[in-house]
């Protein structure tokens, strides 16, 4: 923008790069070592062993994932752990064409919410989809609410107890 507003002088790229304008840098050193807590620690430990763990609330009878030590609806402690399947069905997804720096991606990424088999209806985990096609038309033809999917895991030796121990979910059948 090279427009003058009320007699002021607009900044040019040159003014910044040539040091004509004050440019102050501050490197933010904001590192955290978050305590994952009882519930998520056990969940992540499960992933390391190729297992997805949920937790059951005997009051509202929902099976929740990711697990938590309390039911946010019933406000009661939870302790009934339930192994879930690594299969499920799509609740919804998006096809993402933007990189972090706002440049365009040639091949899109597909973030999705997946209702895992064994979890309650509507209880989903957020992850990526893969092997779902390269173009938008292929992807949208292949995927829809209810499309069955299955986890594609990293090899056991590469797992570290992180959500990325699952590489992605892929559509199955159909």
């Amino acid at each position: 923008m090279e427009q003058k507003i009320r007699g002021g002088t607009s900044l040019t790229d040159h003014a910044l790069t040539a040091g004509e304008a004050l440019l102050t840098h501050w490197q933010v050193k904001s590192d955290y070592r978050w305590d994952a807590g009882a519930a998520l620690s056990r969940f992540l430990e499960g992933l390391k062993h190729g297992q997805i763990l949920g937790i059951h609330c005997p009051q509202c009878r929902r099976t929740l994932v990711p697990p938590r030590v309390f039911c946010e609806r019933c406000f009661r402690p939870l302790e009934q752990w339930v192994p879930l399947y690594d299969t499920g069905k799509l609740i919804t997804y998006s096809v993402s064409y933007v990189n972090w720096d706002a440049t365009r991606r040639r091949t899109p990424e597909i973030p999705a919410v997946i209702e895992l088999d064994g979890a309650s209806p509507g209880i989903g985990i957020l992850h990526l989809l893969g092997e779902a096609g390269g173009s938008l038309s292929e992807i949208t033809a292949r995927l829809g609410a209810g499309t069955p999917v299955q986890a594609v895991w990293k090899p056991a030796a590469e797992r570290e107890g992180a959500i990325t121990d699952i590489r992605y979910f892929r559509p199955v059948g159909g």
């Binding site: 305590d35 807590g37 998520l40 938590r68 030590v69 309390f70 406000f75 402690p77």
Partner: peptide
């Protein structure tokens, strides 16, 4: 330090007591 509990779990403990 409270490595055994997330901040959510700490608040849940305090909330249960308060209620």
């Amino acid at each position: 330090r409270t490595p055994e509990a997330s901040f959510r779990e700490l608040v849940f403990q305090a909330a249960q007591k308060a209620y």
